[in-house]
Computed example of a mutant assay.
Amino acid sequence: MTVDIALRRRAILTGLRPFLDDDALLSAVALWAREYANQPPFALSGFVAKCCARAEHLAQRGQMLRAIIAAMELPPSQLLPDPGSQGEILAAVAEQARLNDQTQMFSLLLSALIGLSDASMQSMIRSRLLQQLTKQKLEREPHQVMQDWLAGHVVSLTKNYDLKLLQALVNQAYIVMCEVLGPVKADQLLANAIRQVDIQGAHLSFRVHDLL
């Protein structure tokens, strides 16, 4: 039962990742763990309804539900890592709230780019960004936090970063997309990610285009 709950929690996280910013995503997973983990599958519709408190999410309610159901059918290797127990999730939410707007916007954009990519390109993007990170002069703890996040080992960033580093990582992700898809399709994927992030990051004072 514990293993099953952990896999379903990872599926919830994976399904909702394209739709919610980091704070909302972790809060949603905490809600599921608290109220819906032991409920039957049809209760997911009620869970998704609670996740759509913001007006911009109402139109995506059906998409969210379908994305969660689809994620439930994925093999474990294609699911995001387990965010942990409810207490760990809530602690991550509190830590995430300390991030500045530019780091939050970076997190939203890169998560969107990865989420809109297939498994092969996701792996290539992560590998390239980890290589880029080794060229940066960061203190040990911020370096480890970013490394773990880029590798997909943790759900959220918990440190703030210099704008030049964030721009360099986004640029490398775009280069990988161009290499795999070609410039035209890469620009289309980037545009889709920006439209998604414009909604998710509407509350932030930092503009997503300043990362490009």
Score class of each variant (00 low, 15 high):
L190K: 03
L165M: 05
Q188E: 07
S205V: 09
R34K: 08
R8H: 12
Y36A: 15
D118W: 08
Q63F: 10
T134C: 13
M124K: 12
E56D: 07
D21L: 07
H143F: 15
S107P: 00
W32F: 15
A193M: 03
V180L: 07
Q131G: 01
I175Q: 13
Q147F: 08
A173P: 02
A112W: 03
E141G: 00
S156A: 10
L138A: 11
M177A: 09
R10Q: 12
L181P: 00
I5T: 12
H57N: 02
M146N: 03
D101L: 01
Q104V: 01
T134V: 09
I114R: 05
D210T: 06
S45K: 13
L80M: 12
Q122A: 01
P18S: 09
D148S: 02
Q188F: 06
V29P: 01
Q144W: 15
L20K: 12
A37Y: 09
I125C: 13
Q104L: 06
A202C: 12
V3G: 09
L181H: 07
N160Q: 00
D148C: 12
D187C: 12
L212E: 14
A92T: 14
V208Y: 05
E179F: 12
A11P: 10
L20C: 11
A97Q: 14
G201N: 10
L165Y: 08
L190H: 09
L157H: 02
P81N: 09
I125L: 15
Q188N: 14
S123A: 14
L189Y: 00
A112V: 11
P81D: 06
S120P: 00
R10A: 10
V197K: 10
F19W: 13
I5V: 07
Q104N: 05
A94K: 05
A70E: 02
M64D: 04
A59H: 00
D101P: 03
V197A: 01
M72I: 05
Q167T: 08
H143T: 13
T103W: 04
E139F: 15
A70M: 00
D187P: 01
I68G: 09
W149D: 08
G182T: 04
H57I: 01
